[in-house]
Amino acid sequence: MAKKESDEQPKKIGKRTDTEEPAGYLNKLQKKASKARAENAKKKEQKQMLNIFEDVVKSKPKTTDIPQEEQYLEATDQYLPFSTSLRADQYLKLKRLEYWNRMSQREIIENIMDLALNNLPNVDKELPESERAKLKQLKTANDYYHIRAKTAKEIQEQGRKLRKGEE
């Protein structure tokens, strides 16, 4: 019995069959290539943004002036960020004082530090220059906030420029 034309299976030519129109196949290839280009562009932009972020983070302003201890001794109303951990028993005692004395933890710690520091030797000895250079800069919490905000704004602006192709 003879085969009908409709019974025949289309021949495979590469990844397409001979029944597909060449124009349709080209459109599929173009869409695939366009999608790959878009993905590559997105990856490239992400890599550039990461490099910008790393550059901004690494570009820490360097101070050449070594802080003078007198500035710190006179700045009794200025607070520097500082954190530590406490033993569990000390933490409980601190919380008890905070509740029963109606004082903030900062006030309590300041009072304790004043009592201890005023009675310890070496508290009045000046630091060597190498150690003074390590002192935290005298900044307010507001200063730290504005530095972080400025850094974030710079990163966003550089990202916009990259997307527009200005650089």
Rank of each mutant, 00 (worst) to 15 (best):
L29E: 09
M1W: 05
K15R: 13
L50G: 05
R132V: 01
T19M: 11
P61N: 00
P61T: 01
P128E: 01
Q9C: 06
K43V: 04
I52N: 03
Q48A: 15
K62N: 01
K31E: 14
L97W: 15
N27Y: 10
I155C: 05
K47H: 06
S59D: 15
K43C: 00
P67G: 04
P10G: 03
K58N: 14
A23C: 07
K139V: 04
K11I: 06
N119W: 05
W100A: 11
E129D: 09
Q158D: 04
D7Q: 13
K93F: 11
S104L: 05
M1Q: 08
S83W: 02
A36N: 03
Q68W: 08
R106W: 03
D55F: 05
S34F: 11
I52C: 06
E70M: 04
E98M: 09
R87A: 11
Y72Q: 01
S83H: 13
E39V: 07
E8T: 09
L97I: 15
E107Q: 13
E126K: 06
E157H: 08
P81F: 12
Y99K: 15
K150M: 13
E129N: 02
P61D: 03
Y99C: 07
K62L: 09
A2P: 09
K134H: 02
L86V: 00
D77T: 13
N27V: 08
T76Y: 12
G165S: 05
L138Q: 02
A149N: 08
E98P: 02
D143N: 12
K4A: 10
Q30N: 14
L92H: 04
K60E: 10
K28N: 05
L29R: 09
G14V: 03
R102P: 00
N111G: 15
E166A: 03
K153A: 08
L127W: 01
I112P: 02
E45D: 04
D55H: 07
K12A: 07
E167W: 06
R160A: 05
Q48T: 10
S6K: 13
Y91V: 05
L97D: 10
K139Q: 10
E166D: 03
K95W: 02
L120A: 02
A133G: 03
A152Q: 13
P81N: 12
L80R: 00
R96E: 10
E39P: 05
Q156E: 14
K35P: 00
D18S: 12
E157D: 09
I147H: 01
M49L: 14
E8Y: 09
Y25D: 08
M1N: 09
V123T: 15
P61M: 01
E126Q: 10
K42V: 04
T17M: 11
T76C: 14
E166I: 01
S104D: 03
K60L: 08
E5V: 07
D77Q: 10
N51S: 13
E69Q: 07
A38S: 06
R132H: 01
Y79D: 07
K15H: 11
K139W: 07
K3I: 07
N40W: 07
Q105N: 08
T63I: 07
N119V: 09
E45L: 09
T140F: 01
K153R: 15
D124I: 10
N111Q: 15
L26P: 00
Q46V: 02
Y145F: 14
E110T: 07
V57W: 08
E54D: 12
D55C: 07
I108L: 02
Q46S: 14
K153G: 02
